[in-house]
């Protein structure tokens, strides 16, 4: 099942295609290797090609081809285990370099990681079939605040901004209650 934002995405038109398999019509995601090797043929399907990045294999390759990757309409970042947090930095780095397409987190993930994924820059998360969607949606909102700024805004509000706002409110209140000097 796919979650987009903090709700269930009922439609997903992307299809993952293995290396060597013929490309069907419509939106497809391919491995980074194939994406780079068949770049010219794939260019014709602009907007309908996505790429998988597997941090276990692709880090060096991805670093060398950032510009090519930025042309993909979708980047699926693979998490081989929930303890393997490389994907968070991969997602964050894509956004930092200005990638504007969809980023999807796939693989083994925990509901408790949902908000972190979104803050790093993921738009959608594929969750396991047996997972309880309600748990995922609840955990996304478990913490209403975050200390780090510069990461994507989610339901968690940035504490530094909240503080600045509270300070302004205090100042306004002080300005109202403090009699002007004459």
């Amino acid at each position: 099942m796919l979650l987009r934002g903090v709700s269930v995405a009922h439609e997903d038109s992307w299809r993952a295609v293995d290396d060597g398999e013929d490309l069907p019509a419509g939106k497809v995601t391919v491995t980074l290797r194939r994406f780079l090797a068949e770049r010219e043929q794939l260019a014709a399907r602009a907007g309908e090609v996505g790429v998988h990045i597997d941090p276990g294999e692709d880090l060096a390759l991805a670093a060398g081809h950032a510009a090519a990757i930025s042309t993909a309409a979708l980047v699926s970042v693979i998490f081989p285990a929930f303890t393997d947090g490389r994907g968070f930095s991969v997602i964050r780095s894509l956004r930092r370099r200005g990638y504007r397409g969809e980023i999807r987190a796939i693989g083994k993930l925990l509901p408790d990681q949902f908000d972190f994924l979104r803050r790093c820059g993921a738009d959608s998360v594929e969750i396991a079939d047996g997972d309880d969607v309600q748990t995922w949606l609840r955990e996304a909102r478990a913490l209403s605040l975050a200390y780090q700024s510069g990461y994507a805004q989610t339901t968690a509000r940035n504490i530094l901004e909240a503080r600045a706002q509270a300070n302004r409110a205090t100042l306004r209140a002080t300005a109202i209650t403090t009699p002007a000097k004459t």
Binding site: T83, F88, D115, L117, R119, Y147, Q148, Y151
Partner: peptide
Amino acid sequence: RQWSTFHPEFTFL
């Protein structure tokens, strides 16, 4: 302390 608390990128090192 604040920056590292629930860091979205660095909690599964």
